[in-house]
Simulated assay, not measured.
Amino acid sequence: MQQIANSLIGLVQKIESTEGAEEDKVAAKSFLRELISNPIVASILGGATSGIFSLLT
């Protein structure tokens, strides 16, 4: 599970560092927020969800 959490954190960091439009970055982070809000995904990730959520704000 830790590998999944680390991959999602890396993805958030890559979204932030890309030269894409801010609107696209917001949409991508919103999609990730929705994904990790899913009860099944959240139960798999466990406590890592709070760390990922903090990166998405």
Rank of each mutant, 00 (worst) to 15 (best):
L35P: 06
I40G: 06
S7K: 11
V41P: 03
G20F: 01
G51M: 03
S30R: 08
Q2G: 14
P39V: 08
S30M: 06
L45R: 01
T49N: 02
L35D: 06
D24W: 03
G46C: 02
G51L: 12
K14N: 08
I36M: 09
A42C: 08
I9D: 05
E22Y: 07
E22T: 06
G10S: 14
G51N: 13
G47Y: 06
A27Q: 11
G51C: 05
L11P: 02
L11Q: 04
I40D: 09
V12M: 02
E16Q: 12
F31N: 11
V12Y: 00
A27K: 11
A42L: 07
I15P: 00
V26Y: 02
D24Q: 07
E34A: 13
F53S: 06
K25T: 05
A21E: 08
A48E: 09
G46H: 06
I36T: 07
E22M: 02
G20R: 05
I15N: 01
G20I: 10
V26T: 10
S50E: 11
I9H: 08
I4Y: 10
L11E: 04
P39Q: 11
G10D: 15
V26H: 03
Q3H: 11
V12N: 00
S7M: 11
N38Q: 12
T57G: 13
E23Q: 09
P39L: 05
I44F: 03
N6C: 05
Q13F: 01
E16R: 13
S50K: 12
S30E: 13
P39D: 10
A42R: 12
L56R: 02
T57P: 10
K29H: 03
L32M: 15
K29D: 03
G46W: 06
E22K: 07
G46E: 09
Q3P: 13
T18E: 15
S54P: 01
A48W: 04
L56S: 03
L35N: 07
I15L: 05
T49K: 08
G47Q: 10
F31K: 11
A42H: 05
K25D: 04
Q3F: 10
E19M: 07
K14R: 14
F53K: 08
V41G: 07
S30V: 05
T57K: 12
I15E: 01
L11T: 12
G20V: 11
K25I: 10
I44V: 15
L32D: 09
K29E: 06
L11N: 02
P39C: 06
I40Y: 09
T49A: 00
G20D: 11
Q2D: 15
N6L: 15
E19S: 13
Q13E: 13
F31G: 12
S7N: 15
D24E: 09
S54T: 10
G47S: 11
I36E: 04
L56P: 04
T49E: 04
K25R: 12
L45G: 02
V12F: 00
E19Y: 09
G10P: 00
F53G: 00
A5Y: 04
I15V: 13
Q2S: 14
E16Y: 14
E19G: 13
S43C: 07
E23G: 00
Q13N: 09
A48G: 01
M1R: 10
L55I: 03
L55E: 14
V26P: 00
S54V: 07
N6I: 14
G20W: 07
R33H: 12
G10L: 09
K14T: 05
L56N: 05
L35M: 12
L11Y: 06
S54D: 08
S37P: 01
Q2K: 11
I36A: 03
T49L: 00
L56W: 02
